[in-house]
Amino acid sequence: MGKPIKIRAKIKGDVAEIKALMPHDMESGLRMNPDTDQPYPAHYITDVVVELNGEVVMTAYWGQAVSKNPYVSFSIKGAVIGDTVKLHWNDNEGDSSETEMVLKPKKKRIGT
C-alpha cells in the first residue's frame, strides 16, 4: 500500500479547486546507486484517477519525469458542498493509494 495522499479543496462559486500531494519516490530508473554502481530501479506512479461523486472526471498518465512527491492541482466545475472528491493512484510496481474528501464550505486541510 502506498503512502496516504494529502488533499485540499477550496470552493469558489461552483468551482472546486483541488490540490493534492502524493508522497512517492518517483524513482526514474536513471539515478545511480553509488554503492552498487547500478541505477536504482524505476519506481513511479503511472496513473491517477480523479472522481467526483463516483464519476471519473480526470485520468492522469505519468512517466518517470514527474517530480518526487507529485503535486497536482486542477478545478472541477459544478461542484457543490457535500460532493465527494476521490483520488487514486497506481504505480509501476502494483502499489496504489487512495483518498477521498467531502467538499466543505470552509477551506479544510486533510492530510497525514
Binding site: 494529502k6 485540499r8 490540490k19 500531494l21 512527491n69 503535486y71 492541482s73 477551506k107 486541510r109 492530510g111
Partner: peptide
Amino acid sequence: EDALFDGAAAYDE
C-alpha cells in the same frame, strides 16, 4: 506547495 501542505506560514495561504 509542499510547505503549504505542511502548514508553513504565509502572508496569504
